[in-house]
């Protein structure tokens, strides 16, 4: 037997051998399935449920190692992130947020995973199906005017903010060690956003390095030292229908350093919530949420914001 023949046999035996390595993948009970109109659920069922639910059903070719291992890993990761069989136990705002993230990942071409779509072409969400999901979510439906409690909360925040010394000297660093940058409020404005999905208004500010990068159009990638602050306020309507910022919700930073933050896509991520500026999350792993949400815009160096030019 020639060398090639021997190699084929060895490869064949190895291929059969690895079939015995079978990580478990079961379907836990469906406890709190998503509540949505049938046409919406049908799309989710067809395109998302195989990984993002407790009703996974693998075709024969997904059951063969080594692709089986990839599939098991993908399903477990997918369920941990978003599980349509258990989503009902989340607060309504978090459910809505998860659906918007899903629709945006579909729109940006990241979901279903391109690798999954290659072998399951039927899972691709068509433009018509995407329109059905968007119509269902309807982010800019008119919202009722702010109630007295919401207005009072803004007044209290404003009063406390203008009468106390800023910056608060006791701001703790984020759990990944990133320090709060109290000067963010004096940075220039990169853009503003009106967020119907989560009823917030946002301002995105940039430090001098970021602004210079915009002026000189050097953002592929953004230079080390560039930093953004994204500030979110509640989005409140008044009785005439005009919309104003309500309560301050949070401030988030992205700080570019391709070496220091190599493990988190080249950016340092941080978020402080409330006027007492409490660091977000329970462990330093919170950055995983930041990176996974920004992954669809990796070609834009992980930046969603489209900076307004003319800063010169």
């Amino acid at each position: 037997m020639n060398f090639l023949g021997k190699l084929t046999i060895v490869a064949g035996v190895a291929f059969l051998g690895i079939q015995c390595i079978r990580p478990a993948l079961d379907n836990p009970p469906v406890t709190a399935e998503i509540q949505a109109p049938p046409e919406v659920r049908q799309i989710l069922r067809n395109s998302c449920y195989n990984c993002h639910s407790n009703e996974t059903s693998l075709p024969w070719f997904d059951r063969i190692a080594p692709s089986y291992w990839l599939v098991v890993h993908d399903v477990k990761t997918a369920r941990a992130h978003l599980n349509f069989s258990e989503i009902g136990k989340l607060p309504p705002a978090a459910q809505r947020g998860a659906l918007f993230e899903a629709v945006n990942q579909i729109q940006l071409g990241d979901m279903p995973l391109p690798s999954y779509r290659h072998v399951h072409p039927d899972s691709t969400v068509t433009p018509e199906q995407l329109a059905v999901l968007k119509n269902y979510l309807d982010p800019f439906r008119p919202s009722p005017p702010a109630d007295a409690d919401q207005t009072a909360a803004v007044d209290t925040q404003f009063h406390n903010w203008t009468t106390s010394a800023t910056p608060a000297p006791t701001v703790q660093p984020a759990l990944n060690g990133i320090q709060f940058l109290p000067d963010y409020k004096n940075w220039r404005t990169v853009s503003t956003t009106d967020r119907g999905d989560n009823h917030t208004m946002r301002a995105i500010l940039g430090n001098d390095i970021a602004i210079h990068a915009i002026e000189t159009k050097q953002v592929q990638p953004w230079p080390d030292g560039a930093a953004f602050a994204k500030i979110a306020w509640e989005r409140l309507s008044d009785d005439k229908g005009a919309v104003h910022p309500g309560r301050f919700i949070q401030v988030e930073f992205m700080i570019k350093d391709k070496t220091k933050y190599a493990s988190t896509a080249g950016w340092g991520w941080a978020r402080w919530r409330g006027t007492d500026l409490k660091p977000y999350g329970k462990t330093a792993d919170f950055t995983g949420e930041c990176v996974s949400c920004h992954l669809p815009v990796r070609d834009n160096d992980y930046v969603y914001t489209i900076p307004v030019t003319g800063q010169r």
């Binding site: 945006n104 956003t193 009106d194 999905d197 489209i306």
Partner: peptide, 8 residues
């Protein structure tokens, strides 16, 4: 870049 957001 984000369904649910409006920008200038």
């Amino acid at each position: 870049h984000w369904f649910g957001a409006r920008i200038p």
